[in-house]
């Protein structure tokens, strides 16, 4: 088991290194000089040069890359070109919006998908199954940002139950949760549809496994067989998809934040791009990549916990 995890850890660490190099390169070759952008069109060339050296932009790329990586390791994400504020501090503020949003959406998706998938698989071909299958077909076809707009139209503009956007901050937790509700629902819907589909088909596969028949031969009822023997096996592919979907959840969150004017990481990255605040772009993207890789590792750990065959 330790061997398996150790190998995964090495491979993930390698992914991080390569990913950081790719991000650095993309930002490096991107057109647009942050210094000239900050000083505007009419800046003197020597003023620009001075700013460049102040920002460390005149150093050789390799040196800047190493400095960036070294800083990230120690929690120093650099200083924003535009705001002259530590990136770490800016990120910390935005994470307070993005992380609860993602977790809320994930929880909601799981809570919807589990019963739907189980009901569909155990009532295969019947009305309940057809209903779930139809709903998931629709669920994966709806762009979440459009669904978000429809939610705003109905619940914010027509019914006025929720506000149409913005975030009041966590000083009032109830209001904060309320303002995250519609975005979380919009994010959760396609995720729930995907999870329910995967759970349904993996349960259907498991139901025809030999060991399920063995369990029936012992005298377990259908329901007992499902709960004691089927569900655990069926959840493993769901786990895989949860891990894989996490990166889509992040991407979705970035777009949803636009719809609801939420001050999260997504808006931060968009602002930084338009302002050529490259250090913010680099660091936030790296952070997101790190989050995806960390979640993948957690998925691996969960596998090992769930499947004894991996524990050697």
């Amino acid at each position: 088991m330790m061997g398996y995890l150790a190998r995964r850890l090495v491979s993930l660490a390698l992914s991080l290194v390569v990913a950081s190099a790719v991000i650095f390169l993309v930002v490096e070759v991107a057109p647009g000089d942050p210094a000239s952008f900050m000083l505007g069109m009419n800046a003197q060339s020597d003023t620009v040069a001075a700013l460049r050296s102040e920002l460390g932009l005149d150093l050789p790329p390799v040196q800047r890359y190493l400095a960036w990586i070294g800083g990230m390791m120690t929690g120093d994400f650099g200083v924003s070109y535009t705001y002259r504020a530590p990136v770490a501090q800016m990120v910390a503020e935005r994470v307070q919006v993005s992380l609860p949003l993602a977790l809320l959406a994930l929880g909601l998706a799981v809570v919807i998908a589990l019963p739907a998938g189980i009901v569909a698989a155990t009532h295969r071909g019947k009305a309940a199954d057809l209903g779930v299958v139809g709903a998931t077909q629709l669920g994966v076809a709806i762009p979440n940002f459009w669904f978000a707009m429809l939610l705003v139209l109905l619940f914010a503009l027509k019914l006025r139950w929720f506000s149409a956007g913005g975030f009041p901050g966590w000083s009032d937790p109830v209001m904060a949760l309320k303002s995250l509700t519609l975005p979380a629902v919009a994010l959760a819907l396609p995720q729930a549809a995907i999870l329910a589909r995967v759970l349904r088909s993996s349960l259907i596969d498991i139901l025809s496994e030999d060991f399920m028949r063995t369990a029936r031969a012992k005298g377990l009822s259908r329901r007992q067989t499902l709960w004691r023997h089927g569900l655990r096996a069926a959840l493993i592919p769901v786990l895989t998809i949860l891990g894989l979907q996490f990166s889509f959840l992040l991407a979705g969150a970035i777009i949803i934040e636009q719809v609801f004017f939420l001050p999260g990481l997504g808006r931060l990255i968009f602002q930084a791009i338009t302002q050529r605040d490259l250090i913010v772009v680099e660091s936030v993207t790296m952070l997101l990549v790190f989050a995806v890789i960390a979640v993948n590792f957690l998925t691996d750990l969960a596998y090992v916990a769930a499947d004894p065959r991996l524990r050697r």
């Binding site: 030999d210 063995t214 023997h229 096996a233 004894p308």
Partner: peptide
């Protein structure tokens, strides 16, 4: 059963 390789639940 015929197939001992698949007749047991691998998780228990």
């Amino acid at each position: 059963f015929q197939e001992p390789m698949t007749a047991l639940n691998p998780f228990h």
